[in-house]
Amino acid sequence: MKITETNRLSLRWVEESDAGFILTLLNEPGWLQYIGDKGVHTLEDANLYILNGPRAMYAQKGFGLFLAERKLDHTPIGLCGLIKRDGLEDVDIGFAFLSAYQTQGYAYEAACATVEFAKESGIKRLVAITSKDNEPSSKLLEKLGMTSDGYVTLPNDTEELKKYGLKI
């Protein structure tokens, strides 16, 4: 189901048929370094990730991580969307793109569209979290107008993360 689009991207629900892409993205060096190993090492794992992650959140909240694909050739290049996490009072914006499509403005484009979607959905405040050493994500969040909101450690985790906030 298509959610929104930008000049170059379509954002849509992640489908089970996207398992190959999810397997690739979740095993990219940047994902593993900054987000962590989600234990997705086979197509079956990727399918379970889709069903228990994005698809479950769509059913519960009406939003989740959306697949960003180029309109030009329908190539899936990343995820960008909204997540309701345990340990965070507000809805969180998250994004991850294949390394081949980073530094080309795609993540910013998708994130702007996601902020607009959140606003249209009645969400009043967004937060974002990132590891302390993830400068590219921090810069993108600041470019979105988000400001530092201290640090947070999520339940069942030990890493202290940078937290950003934005009233929309």
Rank of each mutant, 00 (worst) to 15 (best):
E5D: 11
T6A: 08
T6C: 07
N7R: 12
N7P: 00
R8H: 13
L9G: 02
L9I: 01
S10T: 08
S10Q: 12
L11T: 00
R12S: 06
W13V: 03
E15W: 14
E15A: 15
E16G: 10
S17W: 06
F21T: 01
I22M: 15
I22S: 09
L25A: 06
L25R: 04
L26H: 10
L26A: 05
N27R: 13
E28A: 10
P29V: 03
W31G: 01
W31R: 01
W31T: 01
L32N: 03
Y34D: 05
I35E: 12
D37M: 07
H41S: 13
H41K: 11
N47A: 14
G53L: 11
R55I: 06
R55F: 14
A56P: 00
Y58R: 02
Y58K: 00
Q60G: 03
F63W: 13
G64R: 07
L65H: 10
A68S: 10
E69P: 00
R70V: 00
R70F: 11
L72Q: 10
H74A: 11
H74L: 11
H74D: 05
I77L: 08
G78F: 15
G78S: 06
G78V: 02
L79M: 13
C80H: 09
G81D: 12
G81I: 04
K84L: 13
K84S: 15
R85A: 12
D86G: 01
L88G: 02
L88W: 05
L88T: 02
E89G: 07
E89N: 08
D92E: 15
D92K: 03
D92V: 06
I93G: 04
G94P: 01
G94H: 06
F95V: 01
A96Q: 09
Q104D: 04
Y106T: 00
Y108H: 09
E109G: 03
E109K: 03
A110D: 04
V115E: 11
E116A: 12
E116W: 05
F117V: 02
G122K: 08
G122D: 12
L126R: 03
V127S: 09
V127M: 06
V127Q: 08
I129F: 12
T130M: 10
T130E: 09
S131C: 05
K132Y: 12
E135N: 04
S137I: 06
L140S: 04
L140D: 03
L141G: 02
K143G: 02
K143W: 07
L144F: 07
T147C: 07
T147M: 10
T147G: 03
D149S: 09
G150S: 04
G150Y: 12
Y151F: 15
V152W: 14
V152C: 14
L154H: 04
L154R: 05
N156T: 01
D157V: 00
T158I: 13
T158A: 15
E159V: 07
E159C: 03
E159H: 10
E160C: 14
K162Y: 15
K163F: 14
K163T: 02
L166A: 05
K167M: 08
